[in-house]
Design a protein around this nucleic acid. Structure first.
Length: 224
DNA sequence: ATCCGGTCCT
DNA sequence: AGGACGGGAT
C-alpha cells in the first residue's frame, strides 16, 4: 500500500493505456538486440539504426560475421553511432565473451540462470548494468528490469528518486512494485522509453499533455 | 546549441 | 568527482 508502489504501477497503467503494446526491443535476432544495446550507449537510437544497417549490409549481424571483421572496418561501419573506437573494442570484448562462454552463439546462453549469467556479463569491459540488463531481458527473455537515463529522469520528476540513489536501488524499488515477470519488466521499460520521447523529454517536458500528469505530487505545478 | 536506451579511466 | 569518448538529428 505504499504511495511509491502505487505511483509506479500508475505510470505503467497510464502509459500502457495511452501507447498500447510495445513489442520491444527493436531487433530481428537476439544477437542484433545485444549489438544494439552496446551501440546505443549514451547515443540516439536513430544513429544506431544506421550503424545496424551498415552491419547487416556487410553480413556482420551474426556472431561469426562480426568476428570476421577487422577493427578498422568495424569502426567505419559503426561510425554513425558515435564513440566508434570504444564501441569497436566493446563489441570485440563481447564476442570474446561469447566465444569462451557459448561457442560464439548467444542462443546457447538461454540455458543459464540470470543469477549466474549477470555477473559474468558485467565482467566484460564495456558492459555495465544497463547494457547487461538490456541483453538479459530483451535478447534472452530473462526477468531483469532495465534502468536508464529516461527512467532516472521520469522517476525523479515524480519524486521517486532519492538523493544519491544508484542504478540497483532504483531498479529494486521498481521491481518491488511489479509482479516478477519478464513480460512486465520488458513492457514497462519499453513504455518508459516511448513516453520519455513523447512527453518526458529532458528540456521542455510536455507534462500538460502527459497521460501520467495526474500522478505528479502537485499536478498544478508542472516541471519547468 | 543541445541532446542522445553509458561506461571506463584517472 | 571529473573527463573522455563522437556522429547525427532537431
Amino acid at each position: 500500500m505504499s504511495r511509491r508502489g502505487d505511483v509506479i504501477r500508475g505510470l505503467y497503467e497510464a502509459f500502457a493505456q495511452a501507447l498500447g503494446p510495445s513489442r520491444w526491443w527493436p531487433g530481428e535476432t537476439p544477437f542484433e538486440v545485444a549489438v544494439g544495446a552496446i551501440l546505443t550507449q549514451n547515443t540516439n537510437w536513430k544513429n544506431v539504426e544506421q550503424a545496424i544497417a551498415n552491419l547487416k549490409a556487410a553480413g556482420a549481424m551474426t556472431e561469426k560475421g562480426l568476428r570476421a571483421l577487422s577493427p578498422s572496418v568495424l569502426e567505419d561501419l559503426i561510425r554513425p553511432a558515435g564513440y566508434y573506437r570504444v564501441k569497436t573494442k566493446r563489441l570485440t570484448e563481447f564476442l570474446d565473451f561469447l566465444e569462451q562462454e557459448s561457442g560464439l552463439d548467444i542462443e546457447a546462453l538461454r540455458g543459464e540462470s540470470l543469477h549466474d549469467l549477470r555477473p559474468r556479463l558485467l565482467s566484460v569491459r564495456g558492459i555495465g548494468p544497463e547494457t547487461a540488463d538490456s541483453i538479459l531481458c530483451y535478447a534472452l527473455d530473462m526477468p531483469t528490469f532495465v534502468v536508464d537515463a529516461y527512467t532516472f529522469r521520469m522517476f525523479a520528476r515524480h519524486g521517486l528518486v532519492h538523493e544519491g540513489m544508484d542504478y540497483h536501488e532504483l531498479q529494486e524499488s521498481i521491481t518491488d512494485a511489479l509482479p516478477q515477470s519478464v513480460t512486465d519488466y520488458n513492457e514497462f521499460h519499453a513504455l518508459i522509453v516511448r513516453a520519455s520521447k513523447e512527453w518526458c523529454s529532458k528540456s521542455r517536458p510536455r507534462c500538460a499533455a502527459c497521460p501520467a500528469r495526474g500522478l505528479l505530487d502537485d499536478p498544478e505545478r508542472l516541471p519547468q
